[in-house]
Write a protein that binds this DNA or RNA. Structure first.
Length: 633
RNA sequence: GCCAAUGUAGCUCAGUCGGUAGAGCAGCUGAUUCGUAAUCAGCAGGUCAGCGGUUCGAGUCCGCUCAUUGGCUCCA
């Protein structure tokens, strides 16, 4: 096994070695007192044997690296408190997660935030009682018997799913014992700073066919300061929520009249059009041809594409002259028909098509979320038709394109390789080939990715690019999907060098993902202070008094004549007031025009970020602004 | 769709035990002509999300519906 250590070294570990063994050998100064380790992002027991290659980070529960352990113990304390207050509650699972922990309970009545005070109070009591956490190891059968006797059916089910012959570990604190791999803090008294955050329904084992359990989300920190800083951080993040900023900056909104159907107001459209212009420029440079295909197409087409069978739950339907039609949830069938309009030679391939396509999807009402998840959005789609030999090169070209897009905006991203889902079509051999094709292409570029089993599209596996919002939630934006199915279903072909017909392979891809979602991410990322080149208003000219009004208008005209987006504020208000407003509107540059400037023939420049920059000639201001726009800084 | 919470003026929010609806900002009108994040005064603005119920009386209590928020599921 190849293990990457936290200091960057990669070492060979023997099968059966635990994180503790490895730390003892290679990180002697870190291993003392070690109970928990982080392996590929997951908390593991330091005693547990490692099964696969991965990255190992040691954690000790005495230092601040032990947040996972602290939170895991906190989750046991919460479960103990809930059991004391609601003895009939059945325990499900309660892991530590990023920023906190949760515990799932099966209860005879739903929890509400009104129960929080009582639960927190009971937790404090348990902390005060300062129980020692004892690790108990039992043979499988005895562990099952124990939880049967405790009347904890979910725990029994969990143990039954563990491999035969394995010893089961339990952790006991006072009267409370839980099935748990560990590790834990030494005693409940060490968990002092926690807060219950929210309640939610959550399906047992994440499957909506199962019973919905009551999940309590909470968080815990080693110090009071850290806990308070965390709460503060959430409050700050809420201020950059794109839904709030969209309304404040008059860019976009979603009204009750159309849940999931966003409105873009004039300033939002300017921003959006800038992104689309950039997209067109990039695709033209990269050898794509833009198309536009219809939003409504007939039933036969959707049956042929497979959407009728595999995507119906997400589609909207209509009848025209008594015939069935569907509103497109994806753009690919339009591209298929575009390809089919003529005969292609192998010399024509790859054929790269792109489309800003408006799609509609019937998302569950509870899933809607501002511009992040809507029911109608524009996908910046590209469809590439190619020979099998061209797969790797085209996939790598797409990865290059997506990376270029995200780097330009300063986004960091995570890539996932999503494999075959349950509801899918095509042969396993095609799926294996397609999945391997994607894997080889990305591995060769040395780009890190994780595998997301069973999350592919119904027609093929995909590489998904995930971006973060203000609260650290991730959203899938770009995607690269390799597809052997659609060309088959639509009977696509090209003429090879042998003069025979051959089946092309196809790539579906988005860069922004959806224009709407990308704008949401960009808004939260920049807190509404967009880069100059996409800013709805780039420069605002502010007159000091009535005497400067004509001059302000003249300057604004010179700017707009050069294609710079400019607004003028000549209201009879104090300059401080006008500046404050322009700042709140996050306008990148303000020009203050008073008698002094008029006399000297200069402009006083103020940048939204740096503040007063002093005076310069209008010509040199225009030059520097044009340079900044050109360079898309 | 499921679990929980929320819904009062354009926005942010107050409204006690059920007794005729309140603030700040924004808007409008007037005065002020001002030098880098808020000038002053006045005016206007509401079917308290919608529908139904309890009550002499409902923003307030109950039920249903709609929408939003945080999760689950799903996904660009």
């Amino acid at each position: 096994m190849r293990i990457q250590l936290e200091d960057g070294r990669a070492i060979d570990a023997q099968a059966g070695q635990s994180a503790l063994d490895i730390a003892k050998e290679h990180l002697p100064e870190r291993y003392s007192g070690m109970l928990a380790a982080e392996f590929d992002g997951h908390l593991i027991d330091a005693f547990a044997p490692l099964q696969a290659d991965g990255a190992l980070k040691t954690l000790t529960w005495e230092d601040d690296g032990g947040k996972w352990t602290l939170r895991h113990t906190a989750s046991h304390i919460m479960a103990q408190a809930v059991k004391r207050l609601f003895p009939q509650a059945k325990l499900a699972i309660g892991p530590a997660i990023d920023n906190g922990f949760y515990y799932d309970f099966d209860t005879d009545r739903p929890f509400s935030t009104e129960d929080f005070d009582a639960i927190e109070k009971e937790m404090k009591k348990i902390v005060k009682e300062n129980f020692r956490l004892e690790r108990i190891e039992l043979p499988r059968a005895e562990a099952i018997a124990f939880f049967q006797q405790q009347n904890e059916p979910y725990k029994v089910e969990l143990i039954e799913d563990l491999p035969e012959g394995e010893t089961i570990s339990l952790y006991k604190q006072g009267e409370f014992t839980d099935l748990c791999a560990g590790p834990h803090l030494g005693s409940t008294g060490k968990v002092k700073h926690f807060r219950l955050m929210s309640v939610a329904g959550a399906y047992w084992r994440g499957d909506e066919k199962n019973k919905m359990l009551q999940r309590i989300y909470a968080t815990a920190f080693a110090t009071k300061e850290e806990l308070e800083a965390y709460i503060e951080r959430i409050e700050e993040a809420k201020k950059r929520d794109h839904r709030k900023l969209g309304r404040q900056l008059d860019l976009f909104d979603i009204q009750d009249a159309g849940p999931g159907f966003p409105f873009f107001y004039p300033k939002g459209m300017v921003l959006r059009n800038q992104l689309e212009n950039f997209w067109r420029e990039q695709h033209a440079q990269r050898g794509y041809q833009e198309i536009k295909t219809p939003i409504i197409l007939n039933r036969d087409l959707w049956i042929q594409s497979g959407h009728w069978d595999h995507y119906q739950n997400n589609m909207y339907f209509t009848k025209i002259d008594d015939l069935d039609y569907a509103v497109k949830p994806m753009n690919c069938p339009g591209s298929m028909l575009t390809y089919k309009r003529r005969i292609y030679s192998y010399r024509d391939l790859p054929e790269r098509m792109c489309e800003l396509g408006l799609v509609h999807r019937h998302e569950l009402s509870g899933a809607l979320h501002g511009l992040m998840r809507v029911r109608c959005f524009t996908q910046d789609d590209s469809h590439i038709f190619m020979t099998p030999e061209q797969i790797k090169g085209e996939v790598q070209g797409l990865i290059d394109k997506l990376t270029y897009f995200y780097k330009l905006f300063g986004f960091s991203f995570r890539v996932e390789l999503s494999t075959r889902p349950e509801n899918s079509m095509g042969s396993q051999e095609d799926w294996d080939n397609a999945t391997e094709g994607l894997r080889l292409a990305i591995e060769e570029l040395g780009m890190p990715f994780v595998v997301n089993e069973g999350d592919g599209a119904f027609y093929g596996p995909k590489l998904d690019f995930h971006l973060e919002d203000a609260l650290g939630r991730t959203w899938q934006c770009g995607t690269i999907q390799l597809d052997f199915q659609m060309p088959e279903r639509f009977d696509l072909h090209y003429v090879g060098p042998d003069g025979e017909k051959h089946r092309p392979v196809m790539l579906h891809s988005t860069s922004f993902g959806s224009i709407e979602r990308f704008i949401a991410i960009l808004t939260e990322h920049t807190a509404g202070a967009f880069p100059l080149w996409v800013s709805p208003v780039q420069v605002k000219v502010l007159s000091l008094t009535e005497r400067n009004e004509a001059m302000a208008h003249a300057i604004a005209k010179s700017l707009s004549d050069r294609g710079i987006r400019v607004e003028t504020d000549v209201r009879n208000e104090k300059i401080g007031y006008k500046i404050r407003e322009a700042q709140l509107e996050k306008v990148p540059y303000m020009l203050v025009i008073g008698d002094k400037e008029a006399e000297a023939g200069v402009v006083a420049v103020r940048a939204r970020k740096e503040g007063d920059l002093g005076t310069m000639t209008l010509t040199s201001f225009i030059e520097s602004v044009e340079k900044e726009i050109r360079e898309r800084r």
